[in-house]
Structures are given as C-alpha cells and as structure tokens.
Design a binder for these strands. Structure first.
Lengths: 190, 190
DNA sequence: CGGGGTTAATTGAATGTTCATTCGGTCGCA
DNA sequence: TGCGACCGAATGAACATTCAATTAACCCCG
C-alpha cells in the first residue's frame, strides 16, 4: 500500500509548505491539490474535510518533533549534558523546518486547537515531562513542578527559533549556548 | 472628533473579539460589522481593506501591551524588584486580555507580518531592550546581548500566559513567582 | 494463465455558498 | 446647498466540497 501512502504524504507536505507561504487562509484546497500533483477530489479520498486535513497534519508534525527530540537523547550521558543536547536538538529541528514552526504556532492559536479535546496521549508532552521529572527526582534541578519546567524550556526554544526565523537577530553558536545556559542556570538545583 | 472615532474603535474591538472566537479566518467583515453595530460599508470608510484593518489592529494592540508594561515600572525601585514587577504586569495583561494574546500570536505567524517591513520604531521592543541594557550595564544581569535577554523573558511570559489560557495547568501565585524567579536566576550576574 | 467481475483510487468540471468589496443613495448638519 | 458619515443590497470572485465518470488493482474461477 505504499503508493497510497505516497499521495497522502504528498498532500500533507504540500499543505505544510503552502501554509508557511500563504498562511492558514490563502491556502485553498485547489492549491494543495496542484502542489501535491493530485486532483482536488483525491484529497477528499484521504481526508474528510479541510479541517480534518489540518488536524491530521498537526499530529504528523508533532510526531516529527518528538522524534527530533528523542533521537538526540542519550540516557547514558550526565543529566546536564542531556539537557543541552535536548535544547539544541529541538532548536535545530525548528530552525531547519520553519514550516513546522509556523504551522504549529498557527494551529495552536486557532480555533481548531481550542475546540478539540486536548490529546491526553500527547507523546511529545509526556516525554518532555518525564525528562524534567527525572531531573527533579535526581536533584539536578530545583524542586518545581516538572510540567512548568518543561513548559518554560520548550517556550525558550520556540521563542528563539521564531526570532531567528524573522531574522530580527542572527544567532551565533555562542548566543544559542548562552540562552540554553540561562535556562539551565535558572532551573538547576541551588 | 475623539482620538479614535467611536465607530472606528468599535470596529477594532469587535475584530479583536471575533478573531479570538473564530480565528483569523472565520471572521468575515459582515460579522465584524454586525458586532460593531455598523454597516459593512462603514468599515471601508475607516479601513481600506481587511488586511489594513488587521494591520492597524496589530499596532493598536501592541500599544496597549506597551502601556501595561510601562504602567508598572517604577524606576525608583531596586532593579530586581523592577524585573519582577515587569514580569508580573505583562503576564497579568496577557492573562486578562486573552484576545490580545491570541490575536498577537496569530498575526505574528501570518504572512501579513512576514511581508511587512518590520517596524523599526517598535516602541514596545525598544522599551524592553532598554530595560535589559540597563540591567547589564549596572551589572545586575550577566554580560549578554540585551536583545537576547529581552526575547527570552518575553518568551517566558507569553508561554506561561498561553498555557494558562488553555487551562492545561492552573497556576497559583507561587507557580508564577517561581517561573519569574527561574528567569531571574538564569540571567542574574553570577 | 486469462479474462470477467468487483472494489478502490483518481479525476476535474459543476455546484452552491461565502465573502470582501463596491456604489448609489440617505441622512444630518453647517 | 454641500459635504462627509453612514447604510446595506448588489456584485463578482474565490472557495470547499460533491459526484458521475474513468482508470488501475486485484482476485477468483475456468
């Protein structure tokens, strides 16, 4: 069933691309179809509606983020080193996939996201939380709600990637390391 | 003639409200007109197009954020105290005006924002930067690019407000203080 | 092996709706 | 009488979605 997956994938990826360029609006199904090299009707073979397409794209993209994060984590390393690896690998992922970043942010602030019951099985979120739970339990990090730590760190990564993208600031490797360091110093056990 | 004609203000505020509820798309001009209590044509008396309306709304909203921040800053206080006041006042502003938060985020990730040359006179940004420049110069904060510090702190505020809004986490005052503290500890001079 | 039959995949023109924008006209005021 | 604010029905373009028709994939019986 590979050929089918091909088309579905092409549709998802075209949508992602086009949303980066033209926004959530300004991306008609006809344009998606054209870019994906399929007929308009074909999209409806794979996705019930535009809304469903976008929601599936969200899951797809989130899965990718998770993989980027997990890929870089080597549990054998000391915790602090793992923290920096996590920070940089996620940042790199967002920097190298600006369309993911944009789509993600647009989706989260759209009614699609608010309307849906939040996915309780959200693997990305869960993995992130576990990482910080571990840090707190082992006293590498200060006593704090791991959810909060996860949120703040992920926020710093997203923010940095967004600013980078807009070229408001061009970050050198030192700058990035400094940002990660600020986060670490703020959260580390006293 | 007021600083802003009553109707113009009503249009701006209705747009803000509706975008929170229905998103950037899903907010037709006719709906804005109805909510603002004016005729569709009237909007075009004040705004050239929907795009212009949205861009003006952005400036308007940014101005409000600036005021929220400045309002709380008392330069007579010690720097650290000013930092916490800034963090909390901006957070409170976003928490109490979720429509601003949503709109802001949606706009920044839309093509409207990317297309426009970035406003070099951006007063919000400038005020923020100056605050952190001062902290670095007076050695309250570590040696770092003040732009970066400003970005990271603002990011932490926005992230917290967003998560709060989605009710993923309900923050108590302690939680908030802890987040601000993490940021301070990370940035403070060693 | 082959061909007839069943199902799934794909097409793209047609449909009906929604929307931004326009414009001829009304109203109130100087 | 003139002007600017304001109205809202009318216009035309753009769009999501549908569907009847076409093609490819597969399977089973002879």
């Amino acid at each position: 069933m590979e050929a089918l997956a091909e088309k579905k994938k092409a549709i998802l990826e075209s949508t992602l691309q086009l949303i980066q360029e033209h926004g959530f609006h300004g991306t008609p199904m006809s344009m998606v179809a054209k870019k994906a090299g399929v007929a308009a009707g074909t999209i409806y073979h794979y996705f019930e509606s535009k809304e469903r397409l976008i929601c599936e794209l969200y899951s797809h993209v989130k899965q990718q983020s998770l993989e980027a994060m997990q890929h870089a984590d080597d549990q054998a390393l000391p915790y602090q080193q793992r923290f920096f690896a996590l920070w940089h690998s996620l940042f790199d992922f967002y920097r190298d996939n600006p369309s993911v970043l944009i789509f993600f942010e647009q989706f989260v602030n759209s009614p699609y996201y608010t309307q849906k019951p939040l996915d309780p099985l959200d693997a990305f979120h869960k993995t992130m939380r576990q990482f910080f739970e571990e840090g707190v339990q082992q006293h590498h990090l200060r006593e704090a709600n791991p959810e909060i730590l996860a949120m703040v760190v992920h926020g710093s990564i997203i923010t940095t990637a967004k600013v980078h993208r807009h070229k408001k600031l061009q970050f050198g490797g030192n700058d990035l390391q400094q940002i990660a360091q600020i986060m670490w110093d703020g959260m580390a056990a006293r």
